[in-house]
Amino acid sequence: MTKQKVAIIGAGPAGLQSAVSLAELGYEVDLYEKKSRPGGHLAEWHVLFPDMQPAGELLDSLMQKVLAHPQIRLETGVNISGLERAGNSWQLIQSDSVRGEADAVVLASGFKLFEASKKEEYGHGIYPAVISSAELEAIFNREKEWPFEKTNKSPKIGLVHCVGSRDAKCGNLYCSKACCITAVKQAIELKKTFPASEVYCFYMDMRMFGLGYEELYHKAQLDYKVHFIRGRLSEASPSGAGRIQVKAEDTLMGRPLKLTLDMLVLMVGMTASVSPEVKENTVELKEYANKGEFVKIPGAVIGAAQWLKPGLFVAGACKGPATLPEVLNDARATALDLRNYLSGVL
């Protein structure tokens, strides 16, 4: 009997981990990635919270397992735009032609970052000193320059939480989960890079739910002297010599607050990347265009299978904001559900 085949859409952390787990369970795995390189957002990060482990290490270890496994076939630059049911299997459609076929499919298309320039009042795309948290990662990775003078060793830096998350005006009522801890992590990294700097985090609520997060927050306050201000920014405005003046409400003081900064970092949240349109025998994978929603799995809480249709499983952050440990665990769990499905248990 030939080995059963599983196709995975998206080679980010969820896709990579699913591929490894499924191959270890004995399946043939076709792993498709839209971009030219695998890794998803993980390839863009510098170090990971809460242990400050370099993101590259995790990606390398995942990639080694993927590349080393003979049953995994990774293809990059392939945009799967839809699925079609053919008997008991699924056909993968790439721009109107069939790209492959599999007994089961894992959708692991991940998330998109909120476009920081949509909050125009914060000045992203207008003032060079205003960057997004993803751009700060790129700076840490030395792929981008600091937006202030090289000679400035004591910059004042502000980090704004909840940009594009928990915001009815952006249509995103959910919390993106990872931004608070990312802000704490980045604040620490900034202090490590510029010990003489002043770093201010503007938050609505500090959501430190994950393992080791609260401890890192504590450390940021005690060891790195990061300032935490409970309040929202009204706007960023230019303040000469490329600096930025921010106005905010200090809600604990109950007074307006003014601060001049060398750099303002917007902690952008997660938004849906692919919205599947599920029909009788086809699934269209639509690109998110400012109105998509995360993939909804009915009955997910009571532990029902993480699938949209029989044989079509969904793993990782395409179901909603998630942190890396959650994504990796979800990928493993999906692999187990999938095995139960293919072996007829489910």
Partner: peptide, 11 residues
């Protein structure tokens, strides 16, 4: 274009 605002504010 947009960037001129910085020089302007710096005066």
């Amino acid at each position: 274009s947009y960037s001129y605002v910085h020089q302007e504010a710096g005066r």
